[in-house]
Design a protein around this nucleic acid. Structure first.
Lengths: 335, 335
DNA sequence: CGCTGGCACTCGTGGACGTTGAGTGCCAAT
DNA sequence: ATTGGCACTCAACGTCCACGAGTGCCAGCG
């Protein structure tokens, strides 16, 4: 496109439509954004923009509204908006006194939904491989034991394993002690090797093998990937232009997780803040909605967080809020 | 009211309105529900029902629709509907292969939302007080330790406590050992007393007191009360007659938990299946919606589960589904 | 006394129709 | 390349009217 004025016009159309929800016409445009040209000139440019598929008119004799492609162009030419001060304060106060990971995630998603006035989604941090700190073995019933693995990054994972009912408590204690000596300080990869060797050294008892795998599994992360969301009410609140059916399918998608997770994975690779607009999401259920997402946590395996709302959203503001919360959350999680 | 025919008329109005979403008039009523009387008679009865506040007309020349009070009367005179066979099958297959408590709750809420086509809510089972099985203390950083409490019923709770940075590792180990001896096998009540005594016996170090409270707290349940929901999409799906604003405030209430939890607590005392209709919920945010709830788990301290939807809902069916899932879930949780 | 048929009345719904005004595209003039 | 002018389009809005579903009331009947 590369035309100074046409870009300004597109920007004005996007901003106008986002804030008023009304198609914007050449006249109003000329009046409120002193572009130094007459409505007629603007009309010419608008015709060109429409030709390029960046804007469209809902019906003849109406103003123009941005297409998905138009929003995309707008987002791409966006420099970056500063986050409001009040928001900055909100972030620190909101997240500062969280007590554990669950709490952090919960607070983050609430906060983000309030800042953006959209549905916020936060993916649980991808669990890093980390060394085992301690393994606890507790016999719950004669045939069943609980194994608790505490990892170096303060995660606590649990699993249950079958135990031969005939095993004496002394032997059980001995196994627990040895297991701990074997596992402490190891990361999952060597752990898997060493526990295998250890199990076979002990004899052909299959339960020791199961026990080993349980420990390795717990060390590897255990919990499945998932994302939590908040602010679902924002989808239907006045100002949203989604139909009730659209809202329903978005809510379904949020609950189903799998669609959303895949989408977030795709977006992870796309730089600091990634935006998917309308059809770009590639899912019918998300037609009419956009997602703004950013990674947080470790750079090599980031988890994502983002905001989801109607395509007609305040992209600059949403992007700023998402970026800010992601940045802050990184600090909290990394430490 | 106590009038055979008037009750039949009320029932017919409720059923008609629920299934068609249209106000029902005297004529259609006389035709489809052979009551053996003419429309004129029905009109007289309807006038009486309106007088009693059980039905109302949206506007002068329209049929009647039930009021909240009318639904209430209808629900109260309901015998009980049998659950469809297909639903019974769904319940067993859906819940049979759940692996842990989280999984059970997750599956239940999904299942219930599908059976009822409403928003399903399931409260996490109230955690019974049980003895401490083992306490693990792991020093994560010089100033911070992770305490993991394993209870006799195989729950694993965790918390973090501050540790004096100057404390030597030997002393830390000693504290951990003593704490374990002190706590093992105790239920929360004596535990609280004994740990208090133990802490002051050790000296005026405040961190030992904090540590003790952390252990007691973890033993008591630790996790806060919460309810999960599913099927939010059903609120907005075609057929619901809630305004978008109403949907928004319901979704907010669901996320806020506190309102919902209080309501569920109130309903716990009201027999096997409890129903709150419209304004009966006592919360403006839930105007226009009804809740059908039932307790599950231990009889003395049941957790609740239920379905939430527009007042114009299929009460017999919803009540049957809620009751059935509650019953089945009780079996799973109790075992 | 309860039930019924008849009748006048109300009022929301939906279609037809004209008006208004915002907005456009095009073109000739600068 | 930009602009003012002009004819044209079309959704939105209001009015009007006919329709019909549904009601309340009343007099008559078993």
């Amino acid at each position: 496109m590369t035309d100074e004025r046409k870009e300004a016009i597109l920007r004005a159309i996007v901003e106008g439509y986002v804030s008023t929800r009304e198609p914007v016409g050449s006249k109003a445009l000329a009046q409120h954004h002193d572009l130094g040209v007459s409505p007629a000139t603007i009309r010419n440019d608008m015709a060109a923009l429409e030709e390029e598929g960046l804007i469209a008119q809902p019906h003849t004799s109406a103003g123009r509204i941005p297409t998905d492609k138009g929003y995309r162009y707008f987002v791409d030419m966006l420099a970056s908006a500063a986050l409001q001060d009040s928001h900055k304060r909100a972030i620190s106060t909101f997240l500062s006194d969280a007590v554990d990971l669950n709490d952090v995630v919960e607070r983050s998603v609430r906060l983000l939904s309030q800042l953006t006035r959209q549905v916020a989604v936060v993916q649980y941090p991808s669990l890093r491989e980390s060394a085992v700190r301690r393994v606890e073995l507790v016999r719950m019933t004669p045939g069943r034991a609980l194994v608790v693995v505490v990892s170096a990054d303060a995660r606590v994972e649990q699993a249950t394993v079958a135990v031969p009912e005939t095993l004496s408590d002394e032997d059980f204690e001995r196994v627990a002690r040895e297991l701990n000596e074997e596992a402490a300080g190891r990361t999952p990869a060597p752990l898997e090797r060493d526990l295998g060797a250890w199990a076979s050294r002990q004899g052909p008892d299959s339960w020791l093998g199961d026990l080993g795998s349980a420990v390795v599994g717990a060390a590897r992360g255990g919990t499945v990937e998932r994302v939590v969301f908040a602010g679902a009410g924002n989808l239907t609140r006045a100002g949203s232009d989604l139909t009730t059916d659209a809202v329903a399918s978005v809510l379904d998608a949020l609950e189903e997780q799998v669609v959303l997770l895949r989408l977030l994975h795709e977006m992870a690779a796309e730089g600091p803040v990634s935006v998917r607009i309308g059809s770009e999401t590639g899912h019918d259920a998300l037609a009419g909605t956009s997602i703004v997402a950013a990674g947080y946590g470790s750079l090599d395996a980031p988890a994502l967080l983002g905001a989801l709302g109607p395509t007609r959203m305040d992209y600059p503001g949403t992007m700023a809020a998402v970026r800010a919360v992601a940045r802050y959350l990184s600090k909290v999680v990394e430490s």
